[in-house]
Design a protein around this nucleic acid. Sequence first.
DNA 1: CTGAAAGCGCTTACAG
DNA 2: CTGAAAGCGCTTACAG
Lengths: 340, 340
Amino acid sequence: MPAKRPTIQQIAARAGVSIGAVSYALNGRPGVSPETRRRIIDIANEIGWRPSVAARSLSGSRAHSVGLALARPADTLGVEPFFMRFIAGLERELSTRRVGLLLQIVEDHRAAIAAMRLAWAERRVDGMVLTDLWEHDIRLGVIEELQIPTVVAGRPRPDTGLPAVWTDDTAAVNSVVDYLYALGHRRIARVAGLAALDHTQVRIAAFREAMREHGLVEDSVVETDYSWEEGARATRALLSRRARPTAVVYDNDLMAVAALNVAAEMGVAVPEQLSIVAGDDSQLCVLTRPALTALSWDIQAYGAHTAGVLLDLIDGGAPESFQERPAGLVVRGSTAAAPH
Amino acid sequence: MPAKRPTIQQIAARAGVSIGAVSYALNGRPGVSPETRRRIIDIANEIGWRPSVAARSLSGSRAHSVGLALARPADTLGVEPFFMRFIAGLERELSTRRVGLLLQIVEDHRAAIAAMRLAWAERRVDGMVLTDLWEHDIRLGVIEELQIPTVVAGRPRPDTGLPAVWTDDTAAVNSVVDYLYALGHRRIARVAGLAALDHTQVRIAAFREAMREHGLVEDSVVETDYSWEEGARATRALLSRRARPTAVVYDNDLMAVAALNVAAEMGVAVPEQLSIVAGDDSQLCVLTRPALTALSWDIQAYGAHTAGVLLDLIDGGAPESFQERPAGLVVRGSTAAAPH
DNA sequence: CTGAAAGCGCTTACAG
DNA sequence: CTGAAAGCGCTTACAG
């Protein structure tokens, strides 16, 4: 039995004005004298009034919420520290602007589309955050069809006209390759994430290009699904080669941790015989021995900026993308000079 | 510019009936003939109509959403796999019942209270999920004051009258101690979570009792904040004792992983000289060498049941708690017979 | 500067 | 079985 919550009716009655006046006063719009406004605001505060989102939504045609549909198996999400940090960042910005976050966790893109369609049809959300874009992403068609204000968390997609918040993966990849090269590494491998993802391809391309620039062979890119298991498998394959790599760069933290174990299991010393670089610099990186050298960037800020861009778009602004500072290398114990 | 979304007005017009009739037909209530109902439903499906939550909320005084305010620093949340699995479970049940999840990530209980108050005052939610209850928990006062339908994810609190979804920690703790005892361990320590939490105290009490029953000294309980750092510190202290424990039981996975590193750093072999048991059996447990023996339980089901209990409560049912199956021990490489 | 009124999209007694 | 109408709590032109 919900307690009775105060309404503008009550405020109007107590202030001796119409509800229209109350609405104007509370929304800081012209049409009421300073004194009346003051009095109305005081009453509202006194009785603890807050506008009903339902009523505001109905009259203002804004839901005052945005949606995030995460399409990954829940068990994987659990150990992948990226998402909680990203969500916390989103939340930080949304809550300061009084917008709610509707979180949906689904299995795949088909389910994500169903969830988006429903949330939109029910007018639960004013816009959407899209993460982990695929090169050929079926969600984009629905966004376009329904004209849902949407921000891409990831590289801009000129084909869509959607604003994006992203970081310069190419610069980050370059800095890693440069560093490893400087340490004397010549056989450098890359264990990449999901091949279908936009940024996976960008990073792979950047890696190949960086290798070429250093005059190195770049035949050692393995694609995975980001899971611990595939990270381990890829590492095992790489370390089984006749001319095995002396350094491997991973696309997330989880796989880098897996790599550490595989190296131990195969008797390959880290960092003496093998250098390992992790992807996201979560707490996972300091929880291993040796601790993992990683590409570090501010994922919470990434989330906050993503929310900001989306809210600006919803508020009618022109789509404006935002570029984060590139990730920087944090060197720990898992990288060292190449063995000779 | 949101696309125009269909309303019952349009359906009524096309069906040649009143909007009242449409509402009755669509909600499966009596008052319309089978044929009319059929026709109305067909039209609704055809034009892809979905009820506006705002309109339903306003007339029905239901928000069709529930809230979860997580009060932990975001960085810790990130590496703690528990929450994503729990949230995924919540979501699974909520979405089948057409209820949204409003997620709020806050720093502490004060902020959680502010977030709850606001969400409730704005009528964004019909109820709340409360996790990580403290023995003396200031959130309970607000729940009581505002009469917010609430489910406790954790042990029931008879002092509140709130329904709870929980698992028998005592049984789980007993099974661990019994097992370690059977392996010959006599000095067993416990690295517990936050002292302020309800279940921390319950587990500590259960641990002490189990030790006493085996005639063992139980002077080795250390309280922490669940973080990697405090887990490492506690382990270091325990392993520095003259008569150091041969087995340590941790209240989550993160600290158990930290323990593994501390053991390595101090030259204590796991499991030969030290057995380690982790708390939640997340993927973290299989990502270490040796893999961690852990208390395993279905956190997604826990989340789903929690949502179910809350929705039943919101639907006007009497508060009904639900007890999960106790956690079972999954034995991996981090436990072995005690050294002699 | 202020009041009275329509409207957002539903639900739900209340007459017929 | 069905229609007409009030109401949920706001916002916003429109008159005064």
